[in-house]
Design a protein around this nucleic acid. Structure first.
Length: 397
DNA sequence: AAATCGGGGGC
DNA sequence: GCCCCAGATTT
């Protein structure tokens, strides 16, 4: 390679970056497209760092259409960083109900408290400070720095890795976290220093609407003349992305228990781990009630279960919840729920406490709750499914 | 480097 | 079923 040739266009990890003139043409082309086609989104009304921050956290691994109603409600409930810093945990969790990745909202509040205590109530401008805030990683740092403060920082998300991979025919696996740095380096070279926030958002809009993972038609792209994989006819190869592992199956019996007053037993999950601090009907794992499942196989209501299984379930309910309900022998329903790394198989049972039973011996983390008060509790997806199964069986006939 | 952490939409 | 989504944190 001749280092004195041309205007010394850069090479990053074997990737040939464009000459300056071409970079500038790309910026103009992309931003001209963005100025006409950009999506009208609620967090784009102004450059308030708080608004941008909240939207970026919600948008992590979550689609725009899903986020919009949550975002509007969240900003009504917590209009300022100070309001967020003072929120009750249950109120906070309720605003995220159904959105998933619930540690996001817990970290959001922790960061709000950090900002109140360490940054005088204002989002810091320095990326080195922004990234110290809880729940804010390299992507969100770049997004806030560029969109709120106009700094030329890369914000590399899935969209941008896919786009750059196709533009430059990059063979690095975008599923490997360590490869993100390569895309950041490239983006630093081509980002528009005058409109960095718009540049990052333009790429995201392009990735969401045209440079999509599937049904991709490179000839429709406003920047097709810059797209090396399109020009070379190799675009179907990019991006290179390795597959992730399948969700591991886990088996549960979910149990709906009613007391004499028509209240149902709920339990609050531990404050750490999956679905932390959220409420569900009692769930008993396969390891505790292995008799419910034959050799790891889920026994659906159709397939039936044995009396012995129900007796075993009664023992477990007595042991873990201090209750002795009378159970219906067959499950009232069966359902599954898929997480990123787990697949829950739930057999849903129903039982009632006998008239003469004591109901005041349940554990600290449990509660008897009237169904009309369920809206005061935060329910995750699997609980919604169990509750729907119960209603379908007993309430809506 | 790999696992954990949710849920929904598209095909 | 599989893949993906404006990823971050923990192990």
């Amino acid at each position: 390679m001749n280092e004195t040739s041309m205007t010394t266009a850069k090479v990053i990890n074997g990737i040939q970056i464009w000459p300056q003139e071409k970079i500038e043409r790309f910026r103009t082309t992309l931003l001209s497209w963005y100025d006409i086609e950009k999506r009208d989104l609620p967090w784009r009304k102004n450059n308030d760092p708080y608004r941008i921050w909240v939207s970026e956290i919600m948008l992590q691994q979550t689609r725009v259409d899903t986020v919009i109603p949550y975002y509007l409600n969240f900003m009504r409930t917590f209009p300022s960083i100070e309001a967020l810093s003072q929120a009750e945990e249950d109120t906070l969790l309720k605003t995220w109900e159904g959105l998933g990745y619930y540690s996001r909202v817990r970290n959001l509040q922790k960061a709000a408290i950090q900002i109140m205590e360490e940054y005088n109530g204002e989002m810091p401008r320095d990326p080195k400070e922004i990234i110290k805030l809880k729940g804010i990683g390299p992507y969100t740092t770049g997004a806030i720095a560029s969109m709120a403060f106009g700094l030329p920082e890369p914000a590399v998300d899935g969209n941008i890795m896919r786009i750059l991979s196709r533009l430059f025919e990059i063979d690095a696996d975008i599923a490997v976290p360590a490869n993100r740095k390569l895309f950041e380096e490239i983006l630093r070279e081509i980002i528009d220093p005058y409109r960095p926030g718009d540049f990052n958002q333009a790429l995201m809009d392009l990735g969401a609407t045209i440079c999509t993972p599937k049904n991709y038609h490179p000839e429709k792209s406003p920047v097709k003349e810059f797209n090396q994989s399109y020009l070379n006819g190799t675009w179907e190869k990019y991006p290179v992305k390795s597959k992730k592992k399948k969700a591991k199956p886990v088996y549960y019996a979910g149990v709906v228990i009613s007391n004499q007053k028509g209240e149902l037993l709920l339990e609050k999950r531990p404050s750490n781990g999956l679905l932390a601090s959220m409420w569900t009907f009692p769930l008993l794992e396969e390891s505790q009630i292995s008799q419910f499942f034959a050799k790891g196989k889920f026994l659906s209501p159709k397939e039936g279960t044995s009396d012995y299984s129900v007796n075993e379930l009664n023992d477990q309910l007595d042991l873990f919840y201090g209750i002795k309900p009378v159970l219906i022998k067959e499950p009232i329903a069966g359902d599954t729920h898929i997480f990123s790394h787990l697949k829950w198989h739930m057999a849903i049972y129903y039982g009632e406490l006998p008239k003469n039973d004591l109901i005041d011996s349940i554990p600290e983390h449990c509660a008897w709750v009237k169904p009309e008060d369920f809206d005061q509790y935060t329910f995750p997806g699997p609980q919604m499914k169990m509750w729907a199964a119960y209603k379908n069986k007993f309430l809506e006939k």
